[in-house]
């Protein structure tokens, strides 16, 4: 069996385990390539259906194309789409682009807090109503107990410590020092009231695997990943003010795969274009403990 097929089959297994074990399950969709591959794998696992809601945290600063792409696929694939947002921080302009917060503070407010409160149901959730073709405030405020996310272990130091099923305690904290063992395809599917579990089907995938899979399955990704004449493209997507494109003329999936295989990018961190990572060496670890992906 070739490597991509093996990765695909193992991830599908994990998604199905998640679906059968968690009554209140959702999947985080950042619009980026990883979580889009994850979404595609869900359609594989459930034969064209996605039987749980997708959660997107809209910071209000996303590159507009990302939102267009999100809503296009929502309609085409009949997705149960929910977004959450820190409306208050945006109204009060407590953000980095407004000059009132550092990168990290801004991330904390617009992503961490928004995510935590959207998952818990404390803040409004905006759910796409397909009949009315618009987002409406969701009446369901039940907290999600299983949260699927597209984390990869080659991406960032702290992430290589993850489990496929990673418990978060009542305070949403991640106890890295004392994680449960995980073996023989058996995962942590039992959990105490008030706690929840993060599920990571993509842990074993590398950046190259992701692109090869996008190529072999012909998965539609947002065009920001490709050079459209400027000699630059995004390697990792985030908020417009804080994400820089890289120099690259790869203009389609084939060229991106070829570029990755030259190893030209292999010694530059994938998220090097993401400003918040630079601010303090291991900022992500802190954000992750807080629940930000």
């Amino acid at each position: 069996m070739n490597h991509l097929k093996k990765l695909e089959n193992d991830s599908v297994y994990i998604l199905r385990e998640a679906y059968s074990n968690f009554k209140s399950l959702c999947m985080l969709w950042s619009i980026g390539k990883d979580s889009t591959v994850l979404l595609w794998l869900a359609r594989k696992a459930f034969f064209g259906h996605v039987p749980f809601p997708l959660i997107h945290i809209d910071t209000g600063f996303k590159i507009p194309e990302m939102i267009e792409y999100r809503d296009r696929l929502t309609r085409e694939w009949h997705l149960d789409m929910i977004y959450g947002q820190n409306k208050k921080a945006l109204q009060n302009k407590e953000t980095f682009p407004d000059g009132n917060a550092t990168h990290l503070e801004c991330c904390k407010k617009l992503k961490t807090e928004a995510l935590r409160n959207t998952l818990s149901g404390d803040w409004p959730r905006y759910r796409f109503n397909h009949a009315a073709d618009k987002y409406e405030i969701d009446s369901n405020k039940e907290p999600f107990t299983g949260v699927i996310a597209g984390v990869r272990s080659d991406e960032e130091g702290s992430r290589s410590k993850e489990r496929y099923f990673s418990p978060r305690d009542v305070n949403n904290d991640w106890n890295i020092e004392n994680q449960p063992p995980e073996f023989w395809n058996q995962f942590k599917t039992e959990f105490a009231p008030g706690t929840h579990v993060r599920i990571h089907p993509l842990l074993d995938w590398t950046e190259t695997n992701i692109w090869e899979y996008i190529q072999s399955e012909n998965i539609p990704v947002v065009s920001l990943y490709f050079d459209r004449g400027s000699g630059r493209r995004y390697r990792s997507l985030g908020c417009a003010p804080c994400t820089m494109p890289i120099d690259s003329t790869a203009s389609n999936v084939e060229e991106v795969v070829a570029e990755l295989k030259t190893g030209k990018l292999s010694r530059i961190a994938e998220r090097a274009g993401r400003e918040q990572d630079k601010e303090d060496g291991g900022g992500l670890e802190e954000l992750r403990k807080d629940g930000y992906m």
Partner: peptide
């Protein structure tokens, strides 16, 4: 390599 920050002891099965 595993943790850009010097967290001292590495504590988990890492890849």
């Amino acid at each position: 390599l595993k943790d850009e920050q010097s967290q001292g002891i590495t504590i988990d099965s890492a890849r």
